[in-house]
Write a protein that binds this DNA or RNA. Structure first.
Lengths: 172, 172
DNA sequence: ATACTTGAATAAAGTACAATAATCAAATTG
DNA sequence: CAATTTGATTATTGTACTTTATTCAAGTAT
């Protein structure tokens, strides 16, 4: 009664698991298990980045345009702990290319220097404006002719929450 | 020789681990272990999303503006498998708010219908244009007066790679 | 009494192990 | 002899278990 027997090629083939490669058990905090599984399903959020540069000769296939693979979060967020998002409402910054419903990426860690576009609260109200300093007076500048500059005074309790690093605009 | 003994409060306290919460071993593909650890370090890429809406009364703290926490990838990428990124070069779509060096999120799964902004190859060259159909003739339309519409012919081997869903513009 | 040492208690973290799955070839069947 | 069954072989996968870390109180020394 001998079946099979020791031989080359016997047994379950390698790379037949759900990931097609070897795995290792890693301990994860329970609250992140579900997000991590989603992250893994999505191949670590890696997306192909295409270049428009033409390599020597005509590119034969679409894949010839792939330059690298990147993760949007890693590309856009330098400091996870100090970064937040803001959904734009209103049109006061339309000339800076910031439209209603755009998503802004904001980093608290970046210094709000003159000329930076910032998120600020004025009397508790969130707003996006360009920071502008002239003759020792600070202003929050809208970029839309219909709006007026807002001088910063003691009374309006202005607080800068962070500097806008990116604008995400939907085309759909 | 009895030390300690059974008693309330003995032993290592809960929540003293590196994550401050219970953990579980999860098997992960080896190639994703490093990205997953980074993902976990960054709290699952969850970022606070602020609203500009003012709740009843003046918001007391910044946290009162937090509406929810979201992950940029999950928010922006509907189909990881059919989505890619393109770095813009050139100014042919400036009037559509697409600037040089902007990053475009492109989905192959979306139908390139009339009026959509698409990524196409013409003679192997990558390009962003608005798709426009008139009198049974297709055009790739730049949005910059300095550029001319490109009629699609048999000869220029046009191929649409996908529809642009989002434009990411850096302000720094 | 006060400071220091020691070991029991408990949680955290990594890994070894057992259960499961998949494949192939020998054995069996029709 | 072709089709089917069986069991050896090997990879995958989930988790139990061991090891390590941390804290507290009893024991010991000063």
């Amino acid at each position: 009664m001998k079946h099979g027997g020791k031989r080359k090629g016997a047994g379950r083939p390698k790379g037949q698991g759900q990931y097609g490669e070897p795995t290792k058990p890693i301990r994860l905090p329970e609250s992140l298990i579900e997000p991590v599984l989603k992250f893994v399903e999505n191949k670590g959020y890696q997306l192909p980045l295409f270049t428009s540069k033409v390599s020597a000769g005509l590119p034969a296939t679409i894949d010839d345009h792939i330059e690298t693979h990147i993760d949007l979060h890693q590309l856009l967020i330098k400091n996870t702990g100090t970064t937040f998002l803001v959904r734009v409402s209103g049109h006061s910054m339309i000339d800076a290319g910031i439209h209603e419903k755009d998503l802004l990426i904001v980093d608290r860690k970046i210094s709000p220097t003159n000329g930076k576009i910032v998120i600020a609260t004025i009397d508790g109200q969130l707003t996006v404006k360009r920071l502008y300093q002239k003759n020792n007076q600070l202003y929050l500048m809208p970029e839309n002719k219909k709006f007026k500059p807002i001088p910063i005074t003691e009374e309006n309790h202005m607080m800068i929450l962070g500097v806008v690093t990116n604008v995400i605009h939907s085309l759909l």
